[in-house]
Every structure is written in C-alpha cells, then in structure tokens.
C-alpha cells in the first residue's frame, strides 16, 4: 500500500527553519511539525502551538491524591477502626497531613507522567516517518518541516510548491 503520508522539506539553517515555520503557521496548516536535534527558543510560538495541557493532568492528579489521602485516613482512623492514639482526635487535618501531602505529590507526579504520554500520543511504536532517510538524519544536522496528508489544506502538488517557496529543499513525499 503506498499512499502519501506526508511531505517533508529540509531547511538550510535554524533562522530559515524558524521563519518557514511562521509561514506554515500563517498559511493555516494544523497537522504539521518541525524537527531539529536541539530545542529552538520561541519555536512553539512560531508554530502557533498552545501551551501544554500536561499541568491540567498534574493538577487533577494532585487533587485526587489529596482527596484519597484524606478519605483513607478518615476511613481507617475514624470510621472502620477508631483508635485513641496519644489523646489525639480520631480525625483531624493536622496529624495525617503527611499522608495527604505525600499522596498529593505522588498522584500529581503520576498525573504528569500519564498526561505527558497521553498528550504526546505515546506509546507509538511505529510511525511512517521512519521510512524517510531525511527524518533519520534529524538527529544529526537536518532541520525539517513535515506536513501531514491528513491536514485539511493538504494538496500533493500545491503543498510541495508552498514548501519550496518558503525556502525548503530536498522536498519528498513520505509513504505510509
């Protein structure tokens, strides 16, 4: 089965890649990405990406942990098996706080990890991009922009011309 999955274009240097990314963003493409072996400051803005959603997962992980810790201590100490220890009340927010706090941190960390996997679409063992020799060179010195065929504005011919017009070279189709 050989269907076009995406079109790849190489760029000469980082400023070229950066400005090309701004042009791709302004042309209204949605399903595309830039690839480089090092982080480029300001690239998320140049690509028009919104901030990561991971903090939301972290927050709700933390809230869950806090609630769980509180409920657990209340169930054990005040409901299921009330026991007087050192004259303390059966339940109070003070003495079990380390448990509430540790569970908050633990589940916030799990939330972060899980959120990172979910938002990055991981685990993903295969991607058609691996078929491209250029893509494999990204870990060396290649700078790429890849526009996927799933994008609504994608057109096998026009997208190629567009990438060429913004300074891309070695433009190739990647097959599924």
């Amino acid at each position: 089965m050989s269907e076009v999955y995406a079109i790849v274009a190489s760029f000469k240097n980082t400023p070229d890649l950066f400005h090309a990314a701004e042009k791709v963003r302004d042309a209204g493409f949605k399903k595309w990405d830039t690839y480089s072996s090092f982080p480029v400051h300001g690239m998320p803005e140049a690509q028009g990406q919104r901030r990561s959603k991971v903090p939301i997962f972290t927050f709700f992980g933390g809230i869950t942990g806090f609630t769980l810790g509180t409920a657990m201590v209340w169930y054990m100490n005040a409901f299921d098996y009330p026991l007087i220890v050192g004259g303390m009340p059966f339940f109070s927010p003070v003495f079990p706080f380390p448990i509430m706090y540790e569970l908050t941190i633990l589940l916030a960390a799990f939330g972060t990890l899980g959120g990172m996997f979910i938002t990055n679409l991981l685990p993903q063992h295969y991607s058609p991009l691996f078929n491209s020799a250029q893509f494999l060179e990204v870990s060396g010195d290649r700078l790429l922009i890849i526009i996927e065929a799933q994008d609504k504005q994608f057109d096998p011919v026009e997208t190629k011309t567009f990438l060429e017009s913004i300074g891309g070279f070695d433009i190739e189709e990647i097959e599924d």
Binding site: G86, V94, F97
Partner: peptide, 12 residues
C-alpha cells in the same frame, strides 16, 4: 511553618 506546628502538636 506546618512542620513546626506538626512536631509540637504530636509531641504535646
């Protein structure tokens, strides 16, 4: 601040 309170509360 909480640890200070917590330790003193538990030691009583």
């Amino acid at each position: 601040s909480f640890s200070q309170y917590f330790l003193i509360h538990n030691a009583n």
